[in-house]
């Protein structure tokens, strides 16, 4: 494991914890897209089924359990515990337009036509677009709480660090996974617009106002 992969995982963990704590502490999920959180729970569930079949390392298993646990805890807080604060009127992205094409693509383009591999491929493709409902919701409301922008920053940074990790592994190990790389590039590109606003306007403002 190289430093980019490790900082990528820690950035991802930070994003997940920031969001969970924000909802728990403020007892509110205002401005948070429940649909994106459901998609992330689906990503982790379909990707980490190998928890049941193979043990890779304590770190690997621990992180997967934490990711799955936090994802479902976040979905529970949004749709059950703090349901009254869920802004359903602005969380209107049609996720079926994401899940169906991604599901089809996973069957067409994969490394191996086995159930675990198809599910892994599905999770890779889905993760690259899972943030769209959240970005769509922010563009509709025109603003995002500062803590939400930090969540998005670390979430976007994690896959960007993975891209560097893959460049590193290609150069030093000859490791190369086209599916993960292409999906990772798409995923990171979706954050570019947000990264620009985060860096240029994030400083010193209480709300990040995104031009609708």
């Amino acid at each position: 494991m190289n430093i980019f992969r490790l900082t990528g995982d820690l950035s991802h963990l930070a994003a997940i914890i920031i969001l969970l704590l924000k909802i728990w502490k403020t007892r509110s999920c205002a401005g948070i897209s429940g649909k994106s959180q459901i998609l992330f729970a689906l990503v982790f569930t379909s990707r980490y089924l190998d928890l049941l079949t193979s043990f890779i390392s304590l770190y690997n298993t621990t992180m997967k359990v934490i990711y799955i646990g936090c994802a479902y805890a976040t979905v529970y807080l949004i749709y059950a515990k703090f349901k009254a604060t869920y802004d359903g009127n602005h969380d209107t992205f049609r996720v079926e337009f994401l899940v169906v094409p991604v599901g089809g693509l996973a069957f067409l383009v994969n490394h191996d036509f086995s159930p675990l591999e198809i599910l892994w491929t599905f999770s890779i493709y889905l993760e690259s677009v899972a943030i769209l409902p959240q970005l769509f919701m922010i563009s509709k409301t025109g603003e995002a709480e500062t803590i939400t922008t930090h969540y998005l920053f670390f979430l976007g940074l994690y896959r960007a660090l993975y891209l560097i990790n893959w460049i590193w592994r290609f150069y030093f190990e000859g490791f190369f996974d086209m599916i993960a790389i292409v999906a990772g590039v798409v995923q990171t590109i979706l954050y570019c617009d947000f990264f620009y606003l985060y860096v240029t306007k994030g400083e010193g403002r209480s709300q990040l106002s995104i031009p609708t």
Partner: peptide
Amino acid sequence: DDPSLEKDEL
């Protein structure tokens, strides 16, 4: 590709 290629990444 070798499907049993262990996926050590998250």
